[in-house]
Design a binder for these strands. Structure first.
Lengths: 185, 185
DNA sequence: ACCTGAACACCGTTCAAGT
DNA sequence: ACCTGAACACCGTTCAAGT
């Protein structure tokens, strides 16, 4: 139990930061607090991250990987709800990934993670009727907007009427699928 | 040009804060900077706002009013793109309104503004084929997600191919409208 | 009633210095 | 190579005091 971090301080900081993020939100996530939890001085993190935003970017990259797993392990018909459920389970992480605090272009790894995510979603939503890239963009937009508006609380009443956020999401996405089925019938 | 703010300090602070928000983003928007621009001491704002988040909430309320105007002054068929265009013109304001930093329930005026906005959008998107509240929720989700993903830069390449963000939005929303038209035909 | 100024407890970031 | 501690320039927020 030496207080020495032989090269794993970066990982320790990421884990501490991840816990702060998920439990208390980005606002409460300071480099100094992460350092404190990792048992290290407040300036030590600068050996491993350029600045606070770089730490946040690393957490967002993790998030894209988590999202990808959550989506692809589901059968095709459930992937729309899976996207929304990911946002409901990891609201703070989801907001960090898509909240605009981090510009993709500023962080090469984040940029790559974002593009990988897009490619993955295009495949995942193929069954949603994507005869064209535009349809994939529309499908992503639909689930993404739904997730965000639910997190914001804009559908609070409708959610109660539907028996929960996930159930409401299923209804909304189901209504679109029905419309599409009617069209192709 | 007396330095005395006869009751309009609240308005002066809101205006200064609005400028900081739109030009430099939420992160740069401190109470102290707003006070500085209003020519007042750093503790004066506390006479008019409970805390920093209350100032942000007031700016978000303004935003919902701006959004409502931007939408309703357009013909029905353009309201989807109008929503996206609002986000493109006021990205920082839009993120403040929907970025989850402010919980609707914590600010009665913000809560009311959010509900008013929902009602307004339900009317605005009626022509989009809303046979049910679910369809209105889906329409809002679609334009909202599209706006957010464009702001995040996730569609950067597709936008370039389409000749700009607004043009891309038109294409995506148009593709959905086509699908709907085919169904009812 | 409204504003000021000092004060406190936090930050992010830098940098010389230690091992 | 990696970490510490002092230092600096910011914050949000509170509170006694001024007008």
């Amino acid at each position: 139990m030496s207080t020495y971090h032989h090269g794993d301080l970066r990982a320790a900081l990421l884990q501490a930061a991840g816990e702060i993020l998920e439990k208390e939100g980005v606002a409460a996530l300071s480099l100094r607090e992460a350092a404190r939890r990792a048992g290290v001085s407040h300036s030590a993190p600068y050996r491993h991250f350029l600045d606070r935003d770089s730490l946040l970017a690393a957490l967002a990259v993790e998030g894209f990987s988590l999202l990808q797993d959550a989506i692809t392990k589901r059968p095709e018909g459930d992937r729309g709800v899976a996207y929304v459920e990911f946002a409901l389970i990891h609201p703070q992480r989801f907001r960090l990934m898509f909240g605009g605090q981090l510009r993709l272009g500023d962080y090469p790894e984040l940029h790559a993670a974002g593009e990988g995510n897009y490619r993955n979603l295009q495949k995942a939503f193929e069954s949603l009727g994507s005869d064209a890239p535009l349809a994939a963009a529309a499908a992503w937009s639909l689930v993404h907007g739904l997730a965000n508006l639910i997190l914001d609380g804009h559908f609070a009443q409708a959610q109660r009427d539907s028996g929960g956020a996930a159930a409401f999401a299923r209804l909304v996405l189901g209504s679109v699928r029905v419309a599409r089925a009617q069209r192709s019938a």
